[in-house]
Design a protein around this nucleic acid. Structure first.
Lengths: 247, 247
DNA sequence: CGGCTGATTGATCCCGGTCAAATGAGGTGG
DNA sequence: CCACCTCATTTGACCGGGATCAATCAGCCG
């Protein structure tokens, strides 16, 4: 794990699902059983876990490390469309589709569980709270994807980068991967540029602007938010779309 | 399942779901029964069907008309994040969330069926092919949302607009709303600008460029694709992400 | 006829892209 | 320990795609 494998804590998948929709004790047990019975996998940093055109047969429960989804255009342009963090699911019911329409690559070493069609269906029918939480995860992923579009379409460079940092902070907080206002941030400026739709040069200048404004620190793959209120304000960040409040 | 000849008779929801994943006869019957038992609704053009912050309690099956999802920033900027066409579902399992994180507005008069929590769950458990098709619809919506991000992040104005037209064409074709290479296009240039992340002025110039290149005609809310091959080429459009091939 | 909404055009500006080079931090092999 | 390589970050100079501002025009409706 990026920040140590907290002994007393629930696994990231349980933490995330429970934040989206409260899991019953039986549900938590069912998830853990499924994970124990599933194929545990690991991959190094910089690997493709899936490529556009691959057959899509298994559901992955992400346990540790960072990955991202992307699509490359023929002429080399690349757009990262989402980050995958510990606790994320990718993707419920994906085996119903024949092939992947995008690629997934790792930023750090990662570990995950693979569930095939039957294992996933078994887990979904084991407990109603688990099934509901998985559906919420899918809805939340769609909501994040929508927000990504808003970011790219209608925010300027400074707002865009600030917004992405705010989102990552909130998501990592749920799975206990922030300490104080800092978190491991294994994203190169090239990656972040492809995520925000900017050039690396302009992304670099935007980061410097955020630093100069006293909003963040970013050194040695560690990001610190110096003033979350101010950062959220410049990004016009509203966390409602993450649906992590579990009302 | 649908046999080409009579498929034009089926409602749009059945056509779309069947294109995503083959429905059984029993499944089609179950959908029709559910629609007959559901609350049928209609709305005029220019109405909000839902607003950010509203409680999200019912699943809608879109039967006719165009709508779109959008989010407005505090300062008036607006981003349209997707178009909702006949046959679309919005959104499976949405009642699991407390509130809407975005708004939905109509472009034309629309009709749709509303299913509450229990009606939707009943339909999902009525037939396995129906449940699978609904899951595919959700996956396809996510894939479209990803492609929207790619559009906004890494395509220039001409490619962006061309891509959006190609996508709409393919989606409308499935629900039999194109005639030849033409379809009703009830989108103002202001709306299209907010969908593509451009200003209305530049969008207008981009449309003129597409017209001048002999790729499209757009008059009286009717869009004709004069050369689909060429349009798809300028957009680098690959329809795989729509998952409408039903392998 | 006047008011309204949407499409179009022209002129100007600037945010962010592109090109090019320098700097720095590891990593590795001699 | 140093020479060298690679990858990531940073900086400078210049350019252009698309934004902005401001009219004008075309339907449409009351």
């Amino acid at each position: 794990m990026l920040a140590g494998a907290d002994s007393g804590q629930e696994p990231a998948v349980v933490r995330r699902l429970d934040a989206l929709r409260r899991l019953s004790e039986a549900g938590i047990a069912a998830i853990k059983t499924a994970m124990r019975g599933a194929i545990a996998k690991a991959a190094a940093a910089g690997e493709d876990l899936a490529r556009e055109g691959d057959r899509s047969e298994t559901v992955r429960l992400f346990l540790s490390g960072w990955a991202f989804r992307y699509k490359a255009l023929e002429d080399g342009r690349r757009q990262i469309v989402s980050f995958i963090l510990p606790g994320d699911i990718c993707d419920a019911h994906i085996y119903l589709f024949a092939t992947m329409d995008h690629s997934i690559a790792t930023l750090t070493p990662v570990t995950y569980c693979e569930l095939d069609h039957t294992a996933f269906e078994r887990l979904m029918s084991a407990d109603i709270s688990v099934a509901e939480a998985f559906h919420c995860e899918t809805l939340a992923a769609r909501a994040m994807q929508r927000e990504w579009a808003i970011n790219l379409g209608r925010r300027d460079a400074l707002e865009r980068v600030a917004h992405m940092i705010c989102e990552l902070f909130e998501r990592l907080r749920v799975v206990d991967l922030v300490e104080g206002n800092s978190f491991a941030f294994p994203v190169t400026q090239m990656d972040l540029a492809d995520a925000t739709g900017l050039s690396t040069v302009h992304l670099n200048r935007t980061l410097q602007e955020l630093r100069a404004a006293g909003l963040i620190t970013l050194r040695d793959r560690s990001l610190t938010i110096l003033d979350f209120q101010a950062l959220a304000k410049t990004a016009m960040f509203n966390p409602n779309y993450l649906h992590l409040d579990r009302k």
